[in-house]
Amino acid sequence: MEMEKTTDPTSFHGAYRMTPATFDELLALVGPHIVKQTTNFRDPVGVSERLGITLRYLATDMSQRDVARHFCVGRATVCKIIQEVCQAIWEVGAPLFMAKPTTEDWKKIAEEFNNQWNFPHCLGAVDGKHIHIQKPALSGSLYFNYKRTFSTILMGVADAAYRFIYLDVGSYGREHDGSVFAQSTFGKALEDGTLLLPQSPNGDLPYVFVGDEAFPLKPQLMRPYPGKNLSDKKKIFNYRLSRARRVVENAFGIMVSKWRILRQPIIAKPEKVDKIVKAIGVLHNFMREKEGLEVECDVGSESGMTDVQIRLGANMYSGAAWDIRENFANHFSSPQGSLPYQNDIVQRGLNI
């Protein structure tokens, strides 16, 4: 059984969130890994239909039961197909579209951040979001978050072009950004020095990641200055950091705009949710490469995902981290590092 493609590209794109040509590229990539052998009892669901079932579920508000009715297959079959296809998308696509950066890759990412968002030596923007789910059985309060809903946490690091460099999903909803980041493989690799990060020729301005106030200040992770009555220098730093940090917010917004299953609680066990979200992350990067940024995507809108709670004590820092943030703040207020419009924006209290 194979999926019949509509002759109307607009209708096809509305149903599967990609053009027929892009669908065929994705099918060629994952098809060999999701094919099923014919049995003596019945013909299996064809590879194109298996991919179509999965994309239709991820891209729309349809439940698995509705998808099963639409494709005229059993609900249990749909559930199994979605998990197998999502696993294949992650295993095949992650090494191609979310590969671990080399030292040269990091330098290119930093150059893009400086050119597009005016933050030198920035390697990525970090943030975490709640992925809302149904209450897992016998889970107690592990997935119960501060919004009084149930969720698992998605931690992402995005580059300057809204692509995800790294994704980690599966932490309990009751946790906060700082602890999720510290426990993630990315956070551990950052602490261990195993990310192959480049060395800055300017010791005062090392290569760093940027995050919001939910993250701790570290030598390789910059966060805003806290408080309201800040000096102009600190306000300018916060503005410049905000310009770079919003990239990851926009990346989440683009992802939710296209893959609308993220707009509502996902009805699946946590381990199955993890596979779904990781596959969506790969599809996000795949689509950014193949079709770019679409006009329909509401950049910056992440309806369906909420911010992770800020923990008390997140503003703790070392002296080295404080010095690095001060160096960036001084640079942004200097003739060499300032933007011609930043003082006006700060004085008007905009975008801080």
Rank of each mutant, 00 (worst) to 15 (best):
Y317R: 11
A320W: 06
E289H: 07
L293I: 15
V295H: 12
G292N: 04
D298P: 01
V299M: 14
I310N: 13
Q309M: 05
E302F: 12
K290R: 15
T306A: 03
S301M: 05
A320H: 07
M316I: 11
V308D: 00
M305T: 15
E296T: 10
E291K: 04
A320E: 14
M305A: 07
Y317M: 12
M316R: 14
L312G: 15
W322A: 11
G319V: 04
R311G: 14
G304T: 06
M316Q: 13
G292W: 06
G300W: 04
S301C: 13
D298I: 10
L293H: 07
D307K: 04
T306P: 00
Q309S: 12
S301V: 06
C297W: 15
E289I: 08
S301L: 03
S318K: 04
S301P: 01
L293S: 05
T306Q: 04
T306E: 06
W322L: 13
G304Y: 01
N315R: 08
L312M: 09
I310V: 14
S301Q: 09
S318W: 03
Y317S: 15
A321V: 07
R311M: 05
E289L: 11
G313E: 03
D298S: 08
L293R: 11
C297F: 12
S303L: 10
G304K: 01
L293A: 06
S303T: 14
A314P: 00
L312T: 12
E296V: 09
